[in-house]
Simulated scan of single mutants.
Amino acid sequence: MSKSDSITRVALKKNTPDVSAAMGSLHAAAVSVAQDAKVEPEILELVRIRASQINGCAFCLDMHTKDARAQGETEQRIYALNAWRETPFFTERERAALALTEAVTLVHDGHVPDEVYAEAAEAFDEDQIAALIWAATVINAYNRIAVATRMVPGAYQPAPRE
C-alpha cells in the first residue's frame, strides 16, 4: 500500500476530546513554566524543531519552523539545525538545550548522559532545565500523535505577532 492509498486514521481530538484537552493543558503548562523560568522562546522553538526532525514529524516541523520564522529565526539556522554541532550558528546555551533535547528524544540510546545534563546545568538554572525537559517531553508526545495519526502538514499559520 503506498502512502497515497493509506487508510484514514483516527481523529484523536474528535474521538478522545478529554485526553486531547488534557494534552493541550499540559502544553500550556509547559509553556507557562518556560516563560516563568525565562527560557527564550527562540530556544523553545529550536527544541521543538530538533525533536520533530529526529522523530520525522512533518506536521510539527511545518508548524514550528513557521512559528520560529514568525519570531525572527533565520532560514540559515533552521536549515542547519539538523547539523547544529558542525555549524557556528548556535550559542553555547542553544547547544546545551539542543543536546538535552536530543538526549531526551533518544532516551532509549544511552538515556540522558551525565555530561549532557552537566552541560545544560552550566547554561541553565534548575527551573530552566525543568522547563526544557517539559518542552522536549511535550513535543515528543505531539510528534508521536501526529505521526501515528498522519496529520497533514501545510495548512498551519502562526498567530499574528502583536
Rank of each mutant, 00 (worst) to 15 (best):
K14L: 14
E102G: 00
K3Q: 11
M63W: 06
N143I: 04
M63H: 09
I133G: 03
I43Y: 02
E115L: 05
A34H: 10
Q71C: 07
T137P: 02
K38F: 10
M1K: 05
E162R: 10
A83C: 08
F124Q: 12
T74D: 08
I7E: 12
P113N: 02
A146R: 00
R69L: 15
P41Q: 09
N140G: 15
E86V: 05
S2H: 14
V10K: 05
R161C: 05
L100N: 11
S4N: 13
A58P: 04
A159Q: 13
A96K: 07
I49Q: 00
T74I: 11
P88I: 01
Y142T: 08
A29R: 10
I129V: 06
S20N: 12
V107G: 00
W134G: 07
A155W: 08
Q35M: 13
S4C: 09
R9W: 02
S4L: 14
L26N: 02
A159K: 09
D36Y: 15
R93D: 09
E162H: 09
Y79N: 04
R69Q: 15
T87Q: 11
P153Q: 03
K66L: 14
L98C: 05
R93Q: 15
Y142G: 07
A80C: 07
A155M: 08
V107T: 02
P88R: 01
H111M: 13
D125V: 09
A146K: 00
K66C: 13
K3N: 11
T149M: 06
T105F: 13
K13A: 14
V104K: 01
F124K: 08
A83Y: 06
S52F: 00
E122K: 12
D18T: 14
